[in-house]
């Protein structure tokens, strides 16, 4: 057996500790140790984006991060997106626009879309499509997803102006 590593990190703002095999990915640990099953494994090779999370604020595929790398870092997952019982505007817009069917890609798309709007509150449709090109969806044909993201972006800009 290999040595298990003891890791202290922050997940969605909460301090978290876990023991892990050094070969385990962040996705494995999120799902199997921390019971945060929002991030999905679609491919395990960086192609589908279903496992998207942010690491120190950067969008990454959690299937291509070793869990041991997160020592002292900041991880944000889909589970941290809603504010208590209140959905994030992106989540609400995904429902309104029916931007999901089976839902397997949805957590990853929401995390990616939030990272986009955090970095660029007013993206063009082309910018949004390129940013989200690493998130594959087998069901929707993407158009409803893009509508939902553009609509959420407009609402968030409006909210910012009012505030």
């Amino acid at each position: 057996m290999s040595k298990r590593a003891h890791i202290s990190t922050t997940v969605n703002g909460d301090p978290v500790e876990f023991l892990t095999d050094p070969s385990a990915t962040l996705l494995d640990v999120l799902r199997d140790e921390l019971q945060l099953t929002g991030a999905k494994e679609g491919c395990g090779s960086g192609d589908c984006g279903a496992c998207s999370v942010t690491l120190d604020g950067r969008l990454v595929c959690s299937c291509l991060v070793l869990a041991v790398e997160t020592e002292g870092r900041r991880v944000e997952t889909i589970e941290g997106m809603a504010d208590g019982g209140e959905l994030h505007p992106l989540q609400r817009k995904f429902l309104e626009h029916a931007a999901l069917q089976c839902g397997f890609c949805t957590p990853g798309l929401l995390v990616s879309a939030k990272a986009l709007l955090d970095a660029n509150p007013d993206p063009t449709e082309t910018e949004a499509r390129y940013w989200l090109a690493g998130n594959l969806c087998r069901c929707t044909g993407y158009d409803k997803i893009i509508r939902a993201v553009m609509d959420a972006a407009a609402e968030l800009r409006q909210a910012r102006r009012v505030a």
Partner: peptide, 9 residues
């Protein structure tokens, strides 16, 4: 190189 996610790493 790759997607936004890949660019993060």
């Amino acid at each position: 190189i790759g997607s936004t996610q890949v660019q993060g790493r």
